[in-house]
Amino acid sequence: MNKRADSVCQHLGWMTDVANSEPIIFDGHNDVLLKIFRAGGLTAAQSFIDGRDGALDLKKARRGGFGGGFFAVYVPSPTDLNAKFDEMTKASYDLPLPEPIDWEDALPVVMSEAAILFDLERRGALNVCRSVADIRAAMAESKIAAIFHIEGAEAIDPELHTLDVLYQAGLRSLGPVWSRSTVFGNGVPFRFPSTPDIGEGLTDHGLRLVKRCDELGIMLDLSHLNEAGFWDVARHSTKPLVATHSNAYAICNHSRNLTDPQLDAIRESDGMVGLNFAVAFLREDGKMLADVPISQMLRHLDYLIEKLGEDRVGLGSDYDGAVVPQDLTTVADLSNLRQAMTEHGYDNALITKLCHANWLRVLEKTWVS
Rank of each mutant, 00 (worst) to 15 (best):
V8T: 08
L328A: 06
G316V: 00
H161W: 07
E154P: 00
R180A: 15
S21H: 12
P76F: 02
S77Y: 14
A169Q: 12
G69D: 03
V323C: 02
V242A: 02
Q262R: 09
L216C: 09
V18E: 10
P189Y: 01
A169D: 09
T43G: 12
P78D: 15
D311T: 15
N336T: 13
D311G: 14
F230C: 00
L275V: 14
G54A: 07
S246W: 05
L289F: 03
E310C: 10
G321H: 00
E87T: 15
K239L: 15
C213S: 12
L301R: 11
L298M: 11
G40L: 00
S112M: 14
L304C: 09
E154Q: 07
G65W: 04
E151W: 02
D119G: 11
A153F: 07
D270T: 12
G274N: 05
W231S: 13
Q296L: 09
L12S: 08
F192Y: 15
A322Q: 05
D57W: 02
Y74D: 04
G229M: 03
L160I: 03
S179C: 12
S317W: 04
G51P: 08
N336R: 11
I218C: 02
D17N: 05
F70P: 00
V242R: 05
A138H: 05
T329A: 13
A55Y: 11
E268P: 01
S77L: 07
I266T: 11
V324K: 09
L222D: 00
P193E: 04
L275F: 07
K60G: 04
F190E: 12
T244A: 06
A114E: 06
R180M: 06
A125S: 07
S223E: 01
P293K: 11
A248F: 00
W359Y: 14
A332W: 10
E284S: 15
L117C: 06
A290N: 08
D86H: 09
I156W: 10
R267M: 02
F184E: 04
E364C: 03
E154V: 04
K60S: 06
M297H: 10
P193Q: 03
P96R: 09
E284T: 15
G64Q: 11
V324L: 13
A280M: 04
D102M: 06
S295R: 08
N247C: 07
E99K: 12
Q262E: 14
F184H: 06
W14P: 05
V188P: 01
M341I: 09
L222N: 06
W231M: 14
